[in-house]
Design a protein around this nucleic acid. Structure first.
Lengths: 239, 239
DNA sequence: TTTGCTTTTATGTCAGACATAAAGCATTAT
DNA sequence: ATAATGCTTTATGTCTGACATAAAAGCAAA
């Protein structure tokens, strides 16, 4: 019946996407600083051995992410950093690639410490049973994969995303990519030390229990505790 | 010398941008629900009386904002809501247009209550003198415009953005558009009641003083107090 | 029913042309 | 000398038509 079940796979990267990523990378690296003017579209097309059409589509992407702004005759300029949508999935991935990793991890963690306790408290308050069931399901998978570091990552991420969804706040959901990037950075850093993975299952359990018990303050505290643990794991990297 | 000092003005909206906004609006309104397939590019071009080129550039923008995803032969589909970059400036503006206003305002305020106290604490901690001077400058303008509601908005926004910048966290800066939208929604709502504007100048002053005094916890508390005040102003709208 | 081939189709890319607005320059007027 | 005016240039914006490509859908054989 369903020969191809790949409805969810990402499409292969095509020309315009490659150009977009290279230009975005150059901008993030500071090769084209804010207020500066990019090369003209024809020049870029030559540089990337592509048509002007593809270059323009790439520029449209960057424009949508707040990196650049085009004006007739004046050319395409890099916008101030404050306008960059740094929480965008693609930009986060680029930023991690470029480094430095440590400030990336600590800055993202600081954001997580601001957002996730509030989301957990909201989830405990909001009591969306279906959404809470998703959290519980993710937790069950985490328990099952306690000793397998690789298999643990995926349900861990789903656990945190499910809490955002359960918050009932339509904007909280937008932080999924941020958490994903934060986890990725954390893994990168902690793998360097090959230290034993912290036993975070009980900490996650406390969060789930507090949300199920409709106890916002307990949920907030439990999430704060988990993230503090993560933070100390990162900090020892810098030392 | 400088006949045209309009380096900072937004370019006039052109065809592709209009198409992008109309499609994004339709998606946000649920006219094209997640997982559904948009009309083909040629059909869209006919519908908007534009060329396929313009339609494609519009779709590229939406794709960059996480709203859609294109696959060869299969068409362009709407992505799940969790992938939407709802903190994007344009999407926030659309969301406010579409309504409902009240949940927009309360959800955004909940986010502000998570982010801004943390940003204020980080700013007090980080002690970037130049950035703190920007906060102080914005505050001075707020004081000068206390009695003029219209003139007050601009320095108020700059005050909050300057705190994000002073946090020293490269990702905190990305919330400028969110705060802007939150303020705009708050103004929309509070204007309906034409109630006397709350005297928030002293509350802002407390935040500034705490940051200058390098007292993170005081800064956090002062920001929390200000936002609680805002919250009660919004709540009375719903009642 | 499954497997493998073929056709169809919607997106992806290209090339060339023209439209448009605004920056830059030269000219003129004050 | 400075400021207003108009012309020219130029880079982005749009349009058209064509071809490339990958993958879904359909067909046929095993």
């Amino acid at each position: 019946m369903f020969r191809a079940m790949n409805r969810d796979v990402a499409p292969a990267e095509t020309g315009a996407a490659v150009i977009a990523r290279q230009l975005a990378s150059a901008i993030l690296r500071g090769e084209y600083p804010p207020e500066s003017i990019l090369p003209g579209e024809i020049e870029l097309a030559t540089k990337f051995s592509a048509s002007r059409t593809s270059v323009r589509e790439a520029l449209k992407s960057l424009s949508a992410k707040g990196l650049i702004q085009s004006r007739k005759k004046a050319g395409t300029s890099v916008r101030p950093r404050a306008d960059w949508q740094m929480l965008d999935r693609d930009l986060l991935a680029l930023r991690l690639e470029i480094g430095p990793e440590h400030s990336f991890a600590t800055d993202l963690l600081a954001l997580r410490q601001a957002i996730e306790p509030a989301a957990a408290a909201a989830a405990a308050q909001h009591q969306d049973k279906a959404a809470i069931a998703v959290i519980a399901a993710a937790f069950a998978e985490m328990e099952a994969a306690t000793h397998d570091r690789t298999r643990f990552v995926d349900p861990d991420l789903r656990f945190h995303k499910a809490i955002l969804a359960a918050s009932g706040n339509e904007f909280m959901m937008a932080f999924g990519a941020m958490i994903e990037a934060g986890l990725a950075a954390f893994i990168t850093i902690s793998l360097r030390h090959s230290g034993a993975p912290a036993p975070s299952v009980p900490l996650h359990h406390n969060i789930l229990k507090a949300i199920e018990a409709a106890d916002p303050e307990a949920a907030r505290t439990a999430m704060e505790t988990l993230l503090s643990r993560t933070k100390s794991n990162i900090s020892q990297d810098h030392a």
